[in-house]
Amino acid sequence: MTAQQITPASKASFIGGLVFFLLVLVLVFVAGWQFSRWVQGQQTAPIAEVRLYGQFMQLDAAELQQQLQQQFVGNFFRVNVDQVQQFLQQQPWVYQVAVRKQWPDTLVVVVTEQQPVAIWNADLLLNNKGELFQAPIAQLQQALPQLHGPDGTEQDALNMFILMQQLLQLHQLSAEQLWLTERFSWRIQLADGLSVQLGRQDTLKRLQRLIDLYPLLQQHKAAAMAEVDLRYDTGIAVRYAEPETKRKA
């Protein structure tokens, strides 16, 4: 068995391969170091923009965006999405929020606003899903019906009001207030101020009876009607407003 001789050519090939390997290691190290520096730089890169989306009627979008800019614009990686959501959920008129980061420097915020459909017991609001929420009633951009009732009956009151309003509007009438008493008796007030007692049973049938008799009742006396009581099986009771001259006397 003869020993293998190392020729000048094989020695040069070995050295060349070793140099190439070392160069690759150096390049990998440099690339890793550069990447590490880039990541560190990105970790301190600020959020440059907040994009706010939604259909706003009650909320001031410009003011809300300014608040977000002041409180949460900063480090991209350190901005806590949960904190942004909690901040927005505490704002009046906000129903739902979605927040996400968009690479490299943007915070995207989508806000769903509360849709108020009625005022409940003078100090709370009902949204279109029958849920109570609190917001400044004075800021309402539109007039809303007022519903009154015991705690926990807001969904029943809203459903009944919708049914009554649909029936009334078929005959060019409208309700603006509804009461549900502790004994579950219904009363409404029409847009012209007429108070209507409907009782606990056959509520919509009794309301239809009022609609049928309304033109006749208006013609019966010159004075305006103040209250109609439909809590009778075979008749109704009507109270007319006192004449102005009598009231002044």
Rank of each mutant, 00 (worst) to 15 (best):
I188M: 02
N75P: 09
P116V: 02
L88I: 13
L22M: 04
A191C: 12
L27M: 06
E227M: 07
T153H: 10
Q102W: 09
E244Y: 13
Q218M: 01
Q86C: 14
E113D: 05
Q89R: 10
L180E: 01
Q55G: 12
Y240E: 02
V110P: 11
R209N: 11
K246Y: 08
F87M: 03
L230S: 01
A237L: 03
F184W: 14
L167M: 08
T2S: 15
A224T: 12
V24D: 05
A224I: 14
L194C: 07
Q5S: 12
R239A: 14
L126H: 15
L107N: 02
I188G: 00
R100G: 11
G152R: 05
R209C: 06
T2I: 12
L25C: 01
T203N: 01
A157E: 04
L23H: 04
E131Q: 00
A9E: 15
W179F: 10
I188D: 00
V79Y: 05
Q70K: 04
R200C: 06
L52S: 05
A45Y: 07
T234M: 06
A157Q: 00
L125N: 09
Q83S: 12
K248E: 06
T112F: 09
L59H: 10
L168D: 01
Q91P: 04
Q169N: 05
E49I: 12
D202S: 04
Q102V: 10
R239L: 07
M57E: 14
L144I: 09
A143C: 10
E176Y: 14
P46G: 00
Q172C: 11
V50Q: 04
A143R: 05
I188C: 02
V110Y: 07
V97R: 01
A138W: 03
Q115F: 08
E154G: 09
L158S: 11
V81D: 15
Q83N: 15
R239G: 15
N127E: 03
D105Y: 08
D123N: 15
N75S: 15
Q134L: 15
I137Y: 12
R200Y: 10
L124Q: 07
K221G: 13
E227K: 07
D82T: 10
W179A: 02
P8N: 07
T245D: 12
F161I: 03
R206E: 01
A62D: 12
W120P: 00
Q43S: 10
Q85L: 07
A48D: 13
V97E: 01
E49Y: 13
F184S: 15
